[in-house]
Simulated assay, not measured.
Amino acid sequence: MVTDPIWLDNGVLRLGFLPVLGGRLLSLRHEGVEVLWRNPRLLDDQLRPVGGHRFAPNSGELGDWVNYGGDKTWPAPQGWSGAHEWPGPPDPVLDSGPYTATTGPDRITLTSGDDPRTGLRLTRRFTLRGNGYRLDLTAANTGGSPVRWALWNVTQLPGGSVHIGLADRPEPRVIDLVPAAHRVEHDVLGDRAVVPRQHTVGKLGFPSSAGWVTHVGPRRLLTQRFTVDRAAEYPDGGSPLEVWLESPLPQPIAALGNLNPPDEIVECEVLGPLTTLAPGARTTLTIEVTVTRPAGSTPSRPARPRTRPR
């Protein structure tokens, strides 16, 4: 099994992947500055294991999840009440199982194994574009029976604020989904919502998402844009976008499978519509991602010469 990282670099952005750990984007560096949250207790800056950690598919309850960080794709809805819900993470196939990788100039495609639990095979294709990239997601039904799922892309980022574009739609524009510690503070300011930096554990859903979200991190802004189908059904109360916050707590959260947050983490989560897939059918979701410096800041280093994937 290949355990070496794969890097995609255009001189402005440098993307790092480790397919042995699934389809994750584990490093996103803009002009040398890391944008994503990655677990430093498990992986170093070169995506090598730390302290003798060994890579292996992971299963169990939420508190058993080996959270490497980065950006990954799962099926939604999440839950534990039956076969119509995905009971992860952890998950030994779609989350932590090895993915195959193919690369080309400015592009990498990562493909999961066939998951007997959901009937799905996931594909993630990244295409570099200047100071951003296009992420094309596909979920294909490889089983023998119809299944109903939505694509769910989860980007883990360090503590910061989140700005969410809102469409002019009836209430509720924002809903509480997982108030595990206390309610997640937020403000609705006309055509946008703002989730300030805060120490808590919980999740908000945005049924009136206008199709964009920006994470304002310590040194960079990451914006994701996506299409919202107003005629479609979305998971979690009709939420095409969700924001999850977590911070270290005195003890694990029993109500969330003994989840024990390792750091202050923000998750910007983009969802596709719930889709019934006949055997062989597929559903797709495209996300356009850009990374910028805050207004008034200066480049961290000169852009490096362009290199091919390796």
Results as ranks from 00 to 15, higher is better:
residue 11 G to E: 10
residue 21 L to T: 15
residue 22 G to W: 11
residue 32 G to Y: 10
residue 32 G to I: 01
residue 38 R to H: 06
residue 43 L to A: 00
residue 43 L to I: 01
residue 49 P to Y: 07
residue 52 G to Y: 07
residue 55 F to I: 11
residue 60 G to P: 03
residue 64 D to Y: 05
residue 69 G to I: 02
residue 72 K to Q: 06
residue 77 P to W: 03
residue 78 Q to S: 14
residue 80 W to C: 12
residue 80 W to A: 14
residue 82 G to V: 13
residue 87 P to H: 02
residue 88 G to Q: 03
residue 92 P to N: 09
residue 94 L to F: 05
residue 96 S to G: 12
residue 96 S to N: 11
residue 99 Y to R: 08
residue 103 T to K: 05
residue 103 T to L: 13
residue 103 T to Y: 07
residue 106 D to K: 06
residue 108 I to K: 04
residue 114 D to I: 01
residue 119 G to S: 00
residue 121 R to G: 02
residue 121 R to C: 09
residue 126 F to I: 15
residue 127 T to E: 15
residue 127 T to W: 15
residue 137 L to W: 02
residue 139 A to Q: 05
residue 142 T to K: 01
residue 149 W to Q: 04
residue 157 L to R: 12
residue 160 G to M: 02
residue 161 S to M: 06
residue 165 G to Y: 10
residue 172 P to K: 10
residue 172 P to H: 08
residue 180 A to R: 07
residue 182 H to G: 12
residue 184 V to Q: 04
residue 192 R to A: 07
residue 193 A to Q: 02
residue 194 V to N: 05
residue 194 V to G: 04
residue 195 V to N: 02
residue 196 P to M: 02
residue 198 Q to A: 10
residue 200 T to S: 03
residue 200 T to N: 07
residue 202 G to W: 06
residue 202 G to N: 12
residue 202 G to S: 08
residue 204 L to G: 08
residue 206 F to M: 11
residue 208 S to R: 05
residue 210 A to D: 11
residue 212 W to V: 05
residue 218 P to T: 04
residue 223 T to S: 04
residue 227 T to P: 01
residue 230 R to E: 13
residue 232 A to V: 07
residue 235 P to L: 08
residue 239 S to K: 02
residue 243 V to D: 09
residue 244 W to Y: 15
residue 244 W to S: 09
residue 256 L to G: 01
residue 263 D to N: 11
residue 267 E to R: 07
residue 268 C to Q: 14
residue 269 E to D: 05
residue 276 T to S: 00
residue 278 A to S: 13
residue 278 A to L: 14
residue 278 A to C: 03
residue 281 A to K: 00
residue 283 T to R: 03
residue 284 T to E: 12
residue 286 T to N: 08
residue 287 I to M: 03
residue 290 T to I: 09
residue 295 A to P: 08
residue 295 A to I: 00
residue 300 S to P: 06
residue 303 A to H: 08
residue 305 P to W: 02
residue 306 R to H: 14
residue 306 R to N: 06
residue 309 P to E: 12
